[in-house]
Amino acid sequence: MPTLKDIAKLAHVDISTVSRALNDSPYVHPNTKKRILEAANELKYHSNSTKEVFTTGKVHAVGIIIPNAKLNIFMDFIQQAELQADAVNYDVIVCLSNDDGEKEKRLLQKMRAGLVDGIIIASTGDNNSLLEDINSSGTPIVQIFREVDQNLDSISIDYSKSVETAFNVLIEKDCKQIGLVNGPICDISYKNKSEAYQRLATNYDLPIIVQNTKDYPKSFVNAGYNLAKKLLKASPNIDAILTANDPEALGVTKYLNDQNIPIPEKIKVISLAGSTLSDLLPIKVSATVFPIDEVSLHALSLIISKVEKLDRDSPLKHLKVNVEYISRMTC
Rank of each mutant, 00 (worst) to 15 (best):
P262H: 07
V53M: 14
I78T: 10
E147V: 00
A223H: 10
V92H: 11
D174I: 00
V252W: 04
S137I: 10
S97V: 03
K173Y: 01
F167Y: 09
A21H: 05
S154G: 10
T32S: 08
Y325A: 01
Y204W: 10
I326G: 01
C175T: 00
L130R: 01
V321C: 06
E42N: 13
V321Y: 08
E102N: 09
L300K: 08
V92R: 03
I66N: 01
N182F: 02
Q150I: 02
G251R: 04
A228M: 15
D99A: 04
I15A: 09
S194N: 11
S301Q: 15
E248N: 06
N41Q: 14
L242S: 07
S19R: 02
N222Y: 11
K191Q: 11
D158A: 05
K44H: 13
A87S: 15
R312D: 13
K306R: 15
P236C: 13
E248F: 06
K105G: 03
A69V: 09
V92E: 11
S278Y: 05
T253E: 07
I15K: 14
T3A: 15
I120R: 01
D91C: 08
K320H: 09
S137F: 12
L206H: 05
L319D: 04
N151A: 09
V62M: 07
P291R: 02
D76R: 02
T276R: 07
K105C: 04
G274C: 11
D174K: 12
P26H: 04
G101C: 00
V88H: 13
E104S: 05
Y225T: 10
D76Q: 09
P30M: 03
D258G: 12
K44A: 11
A69L: 14
F145T: 06
S137K: 14
P2S: 15
K9S: 14
V59G: 13
K34Q: 13
V181F: 06
V269F: 13
G118F: 00
T165C: 08
T202K: 15
Q198G: 08
V323G: 01
E324Q: 05
F220D: 13
V18I: 10
Q150C: 07
S154Q: 03
G101Y: 02
S314C: 06
A228D: 14
L272D: 03
G63P: 08
Q143D: 01
M111C: 09
K34V: 05
V142G: 07
D313W: 10
G183H: 04
I208P: 11
S16R: 06
E104L: 00
